[in-house]
Nucleic acid binder design. Structure first.
Length: 701
DNA sequence: CAGTGAGCGAGCTTCCGCTTGACTT
């Protein structure tokens, strides 16, 4: 009697093998074993000529999908067939989520087993959980399989009808999709906000005070009872104070006059306020939060984070790294609590074991949260790891241990200080009990917010006290445009909208960079001219598809299909073939969209037109009577293109190069040029005995 | 590499989500 058990991951297979009796053979499918054909080369000759074959879904025959076994999966399928040949029973133990259910179904379709079949599910890899799961098998859930198939087909329909439209209207090789196009749109919209942003400036005063030799700082907040304007009072679109705000805007002059006047005044404590609060530790890591923290704290990209986590997983240091669940097993909670007690003492334990519940949209929770593996956690020092692996393990270990630690208790102190008619405020923070702060403080994209976690000590003060003023400075401030997305903040936004899955967050960023939709500059994602053109087309002609809520609505229908409340075929028919369906839309828009217009980008604050050409973006401007075209260097993005930059590029095109200096020895002029690959310097050397001067090129970084 | 941006038309590009190695740089 022998049983073949199929799981998705080989590492999982190795572990489970130890928990099953003799006669059980455990093998891995390595994810999906069948898929729609990806490119023309994958389409079988039998259907190659058909119109629908290009998208791999027969849209005229009830959306019948054309499944093939990809080249890199043929070995796996062969191995599984051989293993099945000598088995008397097949157990499908793929993950318990939509994709996992589908993998089981595809395995049945491909392997065509003649032996009894069982579907086994588990969420923890412990001997107990595995034994329990094998004793409580079910069958493959066809409804869930249909939900996955619907998702797969819908994504194919969107991607493989919109992308060709972009090739025709904008540029070769572009792509659109339910997930990537929303991500690109987020980047573009943020950049548009930044372009439309108008800086506001204001001044205030900072007092350096002291009491009993303890220094502290206070900021001017009011004058004669009127609040002083700060950054939040400005309208981002105008750079002016929002109309109707009863605030006093200080300019440089007013600030300096006030500074001089207050310098000689006595300073008196007018009011004291204390407010205490508690903070709970963050939930244990999911893929998304791990990528965010690793990007913020370790400066690792999503891809590097996943590569490192995969290695830790394969070596048995952590649990599975692609998960949307914040659930910790009983075993994990016990291990974390033991760590807390050993390292920080019992007073740092949370009174009750703390369990988190998922709040992200569409979480499928087939796995545990990401945590140190095993029933006792190895401390980072005990692992013998080094480099990135050590740092990432340490991050995971600390975050997990912190979940079972006591809340932190802190007191915020606010002190009002009066100097003549000017009101100042000093704020302090006292940590009364560090609790989980001892192990872990969550990082932030905003450096100011990170500072907020520090303790700020104020001297002991009472109302009526008169601290000394050591210095009084007038300080200029400027409002800041909204920050660009980083990998961390993009992943966070996508996850909160339910867009993308743990296995895809890292590759979404890879895709939009590969397609030339964004560049990574100083850890920020900066959208390109192409991204602007593509987003403008999609927003104008396919607004529902680039609505961030599209995925959430789709997910709701998929959930209904999973439970049998909704039918998959009518949903797809309405989406694709209906009167307002995608197919009709694309065909209609195709005749309406003018390619030249689609390749032209409107940028806030720019008169010149930007066009996407075959070799990159270029400026097209009318200079009197003739039309001037000037290439935009590849590393320049819409973010860099202000009117001055446009003028520079156009002038260099029409008037020739700028002279930047002379060669120190020969005295020859050196020119600053801007080519499609960026700025470079050109030096003219006239050689004797050669009638025509030669152009010598030198590259400069 | 230091220019280009039209139009002709062959065949091609492309999606999202599940999982590792086998490749090259």
């Amino acid at each position: 009697m022998s049983t073949l058990v199929i799981v998705e991951s080989p590492t999982k297979a190795k572990t489970i093998r130890n928990y099953l009796p003799q006669g059980y053979q455990v093998e891995a499918s390595m994810g999906h074993i069948r898929d729609l054909p990806q490119s023309a080369g994958d389409i079988p000759a039998s259907v190659k000529g058909q119109e629908w074959a290009k998208i791999g879904v027969n849209v005229e025959a009830d959306f019948e999908p054309l499944y093939i076994i990809p080249q890199d999966k043929k070995k796996v399928v062969k191995m599984l067939k051989e293993a099945l040949a000598s088995a008397d029973e097949l157990v499908l133990a793929t993950d318990e989520d939509r994709e996992g259910e589908s993998i089981s179904w595809h395995l049945l379709q491909v392997l065509k087993p003649k032996v009894p079949i069982k579907r086994m599910v588990f969420h923890e890899i412990t001997e107990e959980a595995i034994q329990l799961a094998i004793a409580n098998c079910r069958t493959v859930d066809e409804h869930v399989v249909r939900a996955q198939e619907t998702r797969r087909i819908l994504d194919r329909l969107v991607g493989y009808t919109l992308s060709p439209l972009l090739w025709k209207k904008i540029a070769w090789g572009l792509s659109a999709g339910r997930v990537q196009s929303v991500a690109v749109r987020l980047l573009v919209n943020k950049e548009q906000q930044r372009r439309a942003f108008r800086r506001g400036s204001y001044w205030d005063l900072k007092a350096s005070l002291s009491k009993d030799q303890v220094p502290f700082e206070a900021k001017l907040v009011s004058l004669g009872g009127t609040r002083i304007a700060n950054g939040g009072d400005f309208d981002e679109a105008t750079g002016q104070v929002i109309a109707g705000r009863e605030v006093l805007l200080l300019g440089e002059q007013e600030a300096l006059v006030l500074q001089a006047r207050l310098q000689t005044q006595p300073w008196t404590v007018a009011n004291l306020e204390e407010r205490s609060s508690t903070r709970k530790p963050s939930a244990p890591f999911t893929t998304s939060t791990l990528q965010q923290e690793s990007n913020r704290k370790l400066r690792l990209s999503a891809r590097d984070t996943m590569r490192t986590a995969q290695s830790l997983y394969e070596q048995g240091y952590i649990t599975y790294m692609r998960t949307d669940s914040v659930n910790l097993s009983q075993q994990a909670i016990a291990a974390a609590r033991e760590c807390v007690e050993n390292m920080y003492g019992a007073s740092y334990l949370s009174p009750q074991p703390r369990q988190y519940s998922s709040k992200s949209k569409g979480a499928q929770e087939a796995h545990e949260a990401i945590r140190p593996a095993g029933s006792t956690f190895r401390t980072p020092q005990e692992t013998g790891l080094s480099g990135r692996e050590l740092k990432l393990y340490e991050l995971i270990w600390k975050r997990t241990v912190a979940t079972q630690m006591a809340e932190a208790r802190q007191t915020h102190v606010t002190i009002q200080i009066q100097a003549d008619d000017a009101g100042f405020r000093a704020t302090g923070k006292r940590i009364d009990f560090a609790g989980f702060f001892r192990a872990y403080v969550e990082g932030s994209d905003d450096p100011d917010a990170a500072i907020e976690d520090q303790e700020v000590v104020l001297p002991t003060l009472r109302v009526g006290d008169t601290p000394n003023c050591e210095a009084l400075e007038a300080i200029a401030h400027e409002t800041q445009p909204p920050a660009r997305y980083t990998e961390a903040s993009l992943v966070k936004t996508l996850e909160s909208e339910g867009i993308g899955r743990p296995s895809t967050y890292a590759s979404i960023i890879g895709t939009i960079i590969d397609r030339g939709y964004a560049q990574m500059t100083n850890n920020s994602l900066v959208p390109t001219f192409t991204a602007f053109a593509v987003t403008a087309l999609l927003e104008k002609h396919f607004p529902e598809l680039v609505d961030p809520r599209f995925t959430a609505r789709m997910e709701q229908t998929l959930d209904e299909i999973s439970t049998g409340e909704a039918q998959w075929l009518p949903y797809l028919k309405k989406f694709y073939s209906g009167e307002q369906g995608l197919d009709t839309q694309v065909k209609q828009q195709e005749s309406l969209i003018d390619p030249t217009e689609a390749r032209t980008i409107e940028l806030e604050g720019l008169e010149a037109k930007i066009r996407i050409g075959r070799y990159g973006a270029y400026i097209e401007a009318s200079n009197g009577e003739e039309i001037v075209k000037a290439s935009i260097p590849q590393d320049l993005t819409p973010a860099d293109l202000d009117p001055a930059q446009v003028q520079l590029l156009l002038r260099q095109k029409t008037e020739g190069p700028d002279k930047v200096g002379f060669h120190p020895e020969t005295g020859e002029p050196i020119y600053q040029m801007i080519g499609p690959y960026g700025p470079y310097v050109q030096l003219v050397i006239k050689l004797k005995k050669i009638p025509n001067p030669k152009w010598h090129l030198c590259r400069r970084e």
